[in-house]
Design a binder for these strands. Structure first.
Lengths: 116, 116
DNA sequence: CTATTGTTTCAATATTACTTGAGAGGTTGA
DNA sequence: TCAACCTCTCAAGTAATATTGAAACAATAG
């Protein structure tokens, strides 16, 4: 990921309504959420919501598809892992013990201890 | 991490000079870098640099200590893992297969295949 | 085709943030 | 103490971004 895209992504995430939208969509998963449902979830009226959704889409963090009268938004997971990768690239040169343990805490098994 | 701190962190990272500073400091590790060296590395003159360093410090992403005539800046690694954790929290509810593999790509062993 | 629901566009306003240059505050070595 | 060095503070000008309400656009159900 190049700098320009990373800057756009961080700018998109630095606004209250947009950050809430993104977190809500990350929780929602691949099925996504309609604009209206999102607006209720994050507490934003229609025109404001639309403005921020467009912003997020331009930043490459979410995508939209029409389903009947609804427009469904979903998060683009790779955009986030790319972003994190860009930020932390080469963080371990000489010091892998510093950030590696911290990143491992992010492993996605919050309650799944009996999976194996 | 609460929303307000996350917003401050993303805002701090959404500016070219500041993003460069942070990435440079992440690479530099715990030894940190003096303000002057940072300024040269990211291409910013003194007053502008100072402005952005203060911003980053207020956002809780870096810290400073004086060493003789120099002021040394270091990155606060936990702030970044907290931030990533806040963003991706509950991303796996029902869909752990989506983000877990992506996050594992971030593991910090770029060239260290002979360590063990 | 008309009414209804869901969403976007537009323009005006208010708010917030960045850059620049000059000057000042500490710290060190002679 | 003086001179040199490193870094910060301040104020002014400029630019970018968010909010609001009204109106338009698109799709569906009756």
């Amino acid at each position: 990921m190049e700098e320009e895209r990373a800057l756009a992504a961080f700018a998109a995430l630095s606004q209250e309504t947009r950050l809430r939208i993104v977190r809500r969509l990350i929780q929602a998963g691949p099925d996504g959420l309609a604009a209206g449902a999102l607006g209720e979830a994050v507490g934003a009226a229609t025109s404001r919501l639309s403005f921020h959704l467009t912003h997020l889409e331009h930043a490459g963090l979410i995508r939209s598809r029409r389903d009947g009268r609804f427009i469904i938004y979903t998060v683009l997971y790779p955009a986030f892992t790319d972003l994190i990768g860009f930020l932390l690239r080469d963080c371990c040169q000489g010091h892998p013990e510093i950030c590696a343990p911290a990143l491992k805490m992010l492993a996605c098994e919050p309650t799944a201890t009996e999976t194996a």
